[in-house]
Amino acid sequence: MAHNIVTVLGLALLVFGVFVFFSAVLGLYRFDYALNRMHAAAVGDALGIFCVLMGLILLHGWSLSAAKTTLVFLFLWLTSPVASHLIAEMEVVTISNIKKECEVEER
C-alpha cells in the first residue's frame, strides 16, 4: 500500500515537473524581453528540476542513484545562478536604454 502511494506521488511529481518545463518554454514565448524571459527559464531550473528529480527519487527509492540525483540538485543549483548573473549583467551593460524596458529604482 505504502509502495503504491509513493509510486503515485513520484509519478505525480514527474508529470507536474514536465508541466512546469512546458510552462517555462511557454513563458519564453510570452514574455517580451531578454531579462523577463530569463525568469521564465528560472522556473524550470528551480521548480521543474525539483519536481522531476524528487519524482525520480521517489520512484527509485533511496539508493545510490538517488544519492547521485541529490548531487545533481547540488551542482545544478550551485552553477545555474552564476550563469544567470553573467547573462543578466551582459544584457544590462550592453543595452542602450534599459529604462525603455523596465523601471530603474535606487533604494
Binding site: 511557454l26 513563458g27 522556473v43 521548480l47 544590462v92 534599459i98 523601471e103 530603474v104 529604482e105 535606487e106
Partner: peptide, 26 residues
C-alpha cells in the same frame, strides 16, 4: 524557490497582465 516558481508560472499563464518589471539597486 518553490513558492516563487508558482508565482512566475501564474504570471506566464496570465500573459504577465499588469506586470511591472523593475531594476532595483539597494
Amino acid at each position: 524557490m518553490l513558492k516563487a516558481g508558482f508565482v512566475v508560472m501564474k504570471l506566464i499563464y496570465t500573459r504577465g497582465r499588469d506586470m511591472e518589471p523593475k531594476l532595483i539597486w539597494f
